[in-house]
């Protein structure tokens, strides 16, 4: 499948949905809020103390609606301060995140 270059992918304004993420094989699950979703990337805010590092692979679970979720593996591409309590984490995903109907 030919995907458009990431920056040109259509973005949907993210509703206030939750995300949880964990390092592979780590017992601790961290939480956050989805900030931005595109076809093969996702950005979210997470508490500063929990922020993953750039290049790290994480397992993402995104709330997508009424009690429905999507699971994806993602690689952290960038982190930046969001406010006093949250950092913004931008990730590339191994499969499409934001498009409806692609959750096999």
């Amino acid at each position: 499948m030919n995907r458009p270059e990431r920056r040109s992918q259509p973005r949907r304004p993210a509703p206030a949905k939750r995300v949880s993420w964990a390092r592979p094989d780590a017992p601790k699950t961290c939480t956050g809020w989805i900030s931005d979703v595109a076809e093969s990337s996702v950005a979210f805010v997470t508490p500063r103390r929990d922020t993953p590092t750039v290049g790290e692979a994480i397992d993402l679970t995104l709330d997508t609606g009424r009690r429905s979720q999507r699971h994806r593996v993602a690689q952290v591409a960038r982190t930046a301060p969001h406010d006093r309590y949250f950092n913004l984490v931008a990730c590339r995903t191994d499969s499409e995140v934001g498009l409806p109907g692609n959750d096999a």
């Binding site: 206030a16 508490p47 103390r49 006093r84 309590y85």
Partner: peptide, 13 residues
């Protein structure tokens, strides 16, 4: 728990 916007909170450890 703390928040800047009143919606997204971080809970103390």
């Amino acid at each position: 728990a703390h928040s800047e916007d009143g919606y997204r909170f971080v809970v103390d450890p």
